[in-house]
Amino acid sequence: MIMKVKWCGFDFGQCVTEPGGLRNPRLYGDLYKELGRPELIPEKILRYRILKEKYGSYGEIKEGHRDEIYRFVLDNNPKAIELFGQKEQELLDVGDGLEDTLDYLQSQRIELQVVSEMKKTLGPVGTDFVSRSLKTKGLVKYFKEMVTPQGKINLEDNSIDLRYKGLTKEDGTLYDALAQELKERGIAPHEAVMVGDKPDTDINPAHDRGFRTIQYIGFIDLGKSKADQVIRSFRELKKIVRKKE
């Protein structure tokens, strides 16, 4: 099925970026070697794994217990905390085949945006984890803007459109505002496609508001959704998505 669209939104975590490169031996290995304390690497890895056992997943720790990473794993060492933030970004992988596909979509003159819930991020808007990662990975040339519950962030000048403030993907209010904004610019929801991995935040609420939806299962398959299409590789988008004139 070919989708003819004018706008394409991408989820950030486990979609645009993948945490596969964030393996503990590499993250803590690099970090503590840089700190000049390589002897601490096994202990730090073990502590992080223990923290995972306390909260169930690394995602849970990062969403709500970052302070405990700093305290229990990094001993509140300011330099270690700073390096941890840097390494988290450096070691994130970009989804396989993504840049090639973004080149294609851009050549089709399809507008691209990141639509992120920003649950695992800290820091002021513009210098937050997602913004910094997009800048570090050189993806700002594709994504000039990012729609988030903190507002729509312009990644070039860090200005914020506050009409999205407090809205979320999960309850669908963010997609309501997005549909309204696109409509004002002459783009109907069925001329927009949302790409993401999470049925509950990326796919189902967007689908319910008339957006086309593509579930990306290249990194993780989170189960059935209302998605119009399911892809394993971003390269498949080149066969599915065309510009709507």
Binding site: L46, R47, R49, I50, L51, E53, K54, F72
Partner: peptide, 14 residues
């Protein structure tokens, strides 16, 4: 394999 045991007063044992 990872077997984790709860501890009443501190972080789990892994």
């Amino acid at each position: 394999g990872r077997l984790s045991l709860k501890k009443s007063d501190s972080y789990p044992e892994l």
